[in-house]
Design a protein around this nucleic acid. Structure first.
Lengths: 206, 206
DNA sequence: CGCTAGATTGACTGGTCAGTCAGCCGAACC
DNA sequence: GGTTCGGCTGACTGACCAGTCAATCTAGCG
């Protein structure tokens, strides 16, 4: 029999780490918990990873790279700016929908950890923000968005809104049925693009 | 000589805790660091507080109560809704401006800590969010805001935007001169109320 | 004074865990 | 069958730190 087809315990450990970090939080999670969850001996974790931190770093970077990549493609597409923002929102919210535990870990432990991890990954995080800022700037140059709002600022508002939604779902303080995700996607973009105040009726259509 | 006018070591310890928690993060801060920062013996911390956690809880609740109180007053005022939102934004941003360390601790260690502290204080946190939602709902009933956006949702977007700004300042990734704070206050409200897309010119004024 | 009570001290304890390490197991290859 | 080598094991160690406590100090008070 050929050498067992890569049991990939490494991946199993990483997956277990997601579950455990999401459930208990990184700080309170013990490496032994991760090993147990993965059904693997304690020492094996250190065979594949240098440290507990490295696992978290890897989880973050792996997924964040996908977000940056997706954002880059969306930016370069020739969709209208509103659809581009919708695309980014969609990607993030779908990520949460499919892998809520991983996204929880990323949002809670990395994005928002101002000391330690947050600082380490600042450059990566900024890349994603910057891409949204560029989408806005592009739209402003094309006259499709107001040009009196700093693009970086708009990006902050956009990301802030989405992260807050994720946080709401994580805390289980806003509803999370299928339709709620869809509604949320629509509403972030709508709110940010259109604003809360009613538009003067520019065409009585209907 | 009258009994020394309450040396208030308790307060000194709490203030030291702010500095230390902000600098090192709650988890990595040692109680001995707090004691040292306060210029006080280790044991004295436990004379005034039951635990390390209790210090953080107290710091959070003390200040969050002010925010809720201010929000409540703003809601009950008869200013236009846009000014009410501006009032809340102003309160939070001014809090950060005057006590950045305390606000950093609150945002990073409590508001955004889905496990541990965040869960503990969820009810208090929600109170503040709910008040913003009510401001929006009031405005919708008065026909001053679009009524096709869920008020809770609008509140999320609003808080998300502000917290993201604070986070930007905390991480030192957006500028923080006096005028930047003022501009930020104006822009959050403007962006959220007016949206990013240009309004159709409803009056050629000027 | 002598007494009481609260403030203050800091050495010490108990428990927890990240990370180490000496060695085992089994597959391939000779 | 022996040898090698990577994957794999889990008991152990060393450091760290929250919280305890017995002792000391200080101030008012009779």
């Amino acid at each position: 029999m050929a050498r067992a087809p890569a049991p990939d315990k490494r991946r199993a450990i990483l997956d277990a780490a997601i579950t455990v970090f999401a459930r208990q939080g990184f700080h309170t999670a013990r490496v032994s918990d991760v090993a147990a969850e993965a059904g693997v001996a304690y020492g094996l974790v250190y065979h594949y990873f240098d440290s507990k931190d490295q696992m978290l770093n890897e989880l973050f970077s792996e997924r964040w790279a996908l977000l940056v990549e997706a954002s880059r493609e969306i930016r370069q597409s020739d969709a209208p700016p509103r659809d581009k923002l919708a695309g980014v929102a969609n990607f993030i919210i779908e990520s949460y929908r499919h892998e809520p535990e991983l996204m929880k870990v990323i949002i809670v432990e990395v994005t928002r950890a101002a000391n330690s991890f947050g600082r380490t990954h600042l450059p990566e995080i900024r890349q994603a923000y910057d891409l949204v800022a560029e989408i806005v700037a592009d739209a402003q140059e094309a006259g499709e968005f107001r040009d009196d709002v700093d693009p970086n600022f708009a990006a902050m508002v956009f990301y802030g809104a989405i992260e807050q939604l994720l946080t709401g779902w994580i805390f289980d303080s806003i509803p999370s049925a299928d339709e709620d995700y869809e509604r949320a996607k629509r509403l972030v973009v709508e709110t940010i693009c259109d604003g809360l105040e009613p538009r003067p009726v520019d065409a009585v259509a209907g």
